[in-house]
């Protein structure tokens, strides 16, 4: 498939799912009524307009943003580490970002200034990516990467559970599921504005890496001789993915497998060129999370089924298949 055609098709898919996300909800609102309420707003205090603009619009926007962030960071990590198993959820970035966010909320730091919450998640994510890149390294085997990821995930998850269990608020302990599985239920425009700046920053760091990642497919020495500054690229990768994953996790919890599945499905379609895979994965990730968020509302409209449940149902068998293939190819 030609690249512009692919991007166009993915864009249409995201647009369609975005519209569907706006139209799905426990309150039955007619198609034309909801769209006109969304666009024209209606009279002040019109309940349909409030639902469309304050409940459904932020949910759909966050679905697209979080999905794009996860897809993009997954594609970038896989490209840089040249490892098909790298993914923010699997290597512990999401869990560490969740720990950063939980610590910020429970200590009250999140209320200190506007962006304190996503920045705390970013710090958690940076620390874990640094640790993983140091442990696995550009030439590290898939085994080391996954083992390090398991350890970081388990540690961050345990610390998150510990902090929430020690909270004097009994509702906090129930939140563990949210931080581990992710949800977009009852988020507001406040969360959109919290996540948007850091996601934009992260995307601005990652998207220009495409050419460097292309060169890196030839190996590090070849890339260096082509003028790619590997040290700088590594720094941009660490900060960029941490900003993307941190912002996404701070508002939606840890949603796994998006960054794994999407680049793999799209890789053959872009001729395995990382520079093309990056934007395609961002769109694909947005489509996957939007679809999952529509599905949780259709499957269990009256209870907050977590997004991570659906992405894992799709992603985990996929992951097993990848391990199988990796093994048979002797990597």
């Amino acid at each position: 498939m030609k690249f512009p055609v692919l991007i166009g098709a993915l864009g249409l898919l995201v647009a369609g799912l975005f519209a569907a996300s706006l139209l799905v909800g426990p309150a039955a609102i007619g198609l034309s009524e909801s769209l006109s309420a969304l666009i024209r707003g209606g009279a002040d205090g019109d309940a349909v307009a409030v639902v469309m603009r304050e409940v459904r619009l932020p949910r759909a926007l966050l679905g697209a943003m979080v999905g794009a962030a996860l897809g993009l960071s997954g594609a970038a990590m896989q490209g840089f580490l040249r490892n098909p198993l790298a993914e923010p959820g699997l290597i512990g970035t999401s869990a560490s970002a969740a720990l950063g966010a939980v610590l910020a909320i429970q200590t009250g730091f999140a209320a200190a200034f506007t962006l304190a919450l996503p920045l705390s998640a970013l710090v958690g994510a940076v620390l874990s990516v640094l640790l993983i890149v140091a442990l696995a390294g550009p030439r590290g085997s898939a085994l080391v990467l996954i083992l390090a990821g398991i350890a970081v995930s388990a540690l961050a998850g345990a610390c998150t559970a510990l902090v929430l269990n020690l909270s004097p608020n009994p509702y906090a302990a129930a939140e563990i599921v949210f931080w581990m599985m992710g949800s977009l239920a009852d988020r507001s425009m406040t969360h959109v504005w919290l996540a948007a700046p850091l996601m934009a920053l992260g995307a601005a760091m990652i998207l220009p890496m495409g050419r460097g990642l292309n060169a890196l497919t030839l190996g590090e020495d070849a890339a260096a001789s082509l003028g790619v500054a590997l040290g700088r690229m590594r720094l941009m990768l660490v900060l960029g993915t941490a900003a993307l994953v941190g912002a996404a996790t701070a508002v939606a919890g840890a949603i796994g497998f998006v960054g794994l599945v999407v680049p793999h499905i799209l890789r053959p379609l872009v001729g395995a060129l990382p520079s093309r895979l990056l934007p395609a994965s961002a769109l694909g990730g947005a489509a996957m999370v939007l679809a999952a968020d529509i599905a949780v509302r259709l499957i269990a409209p009256d209870r907050d089924l977590k997004l991570g449940v659906l992405t894992a149902l799709v992603g985990a068998p996929f992951f097993l298949h990848l391990i199988w293939r990796t093994r048979s190819e002797g990597i």
Binding site: V51, V55, G108, P170, A174, E175, D302
Partner: peptide, 26 residues
């Protein structure tokens, strides 16, 4: 669901006591 509550447009929305420490549930 939050959107059902908003659409029902009640005259009064009564909430209970809240724990001072944060929780997403609140």
């Amino acid at each position: 669901a939050l959107e059902q509550l908003v659409l029902a447009d009640p005259d009064l929305i009564l909430t209970g006591r809240r724990y001072p420490t944060p929780a997403r549930a609140q």
